[in-house]
Amino acid sequence: MSLEVMLNAAGLAFVVAGARWHQADGQVVFLFILAMAAAEVAVGLALVRQIYERFRSLDADALSEMKG
């Protein structure tokens, strides 16, 4: 979720910049960010589900088998 917020914030910055100089580029970039966020959410949530099924917990610290 925080990731979504961050992406949103970046997109906002782009749009503001685009509006500042009255160009379409900002919105175009926001579109790309949006597409990227969508793809990332899809994959990420699928991963979250798999992890939940394996480890039965959403604790990120549970995934420490690559320790050392």
């Binding site: 420490s64 320790k67 050392g68």
Partner: peptide, 9 residues
């Protein structure tokens, strides 16, 4: 080695 905790966070 200590820095490789394996934890995502």
């Amino acid at each position: 080695s200590e820095t490789e905790t394996g934890r995502i966070r």
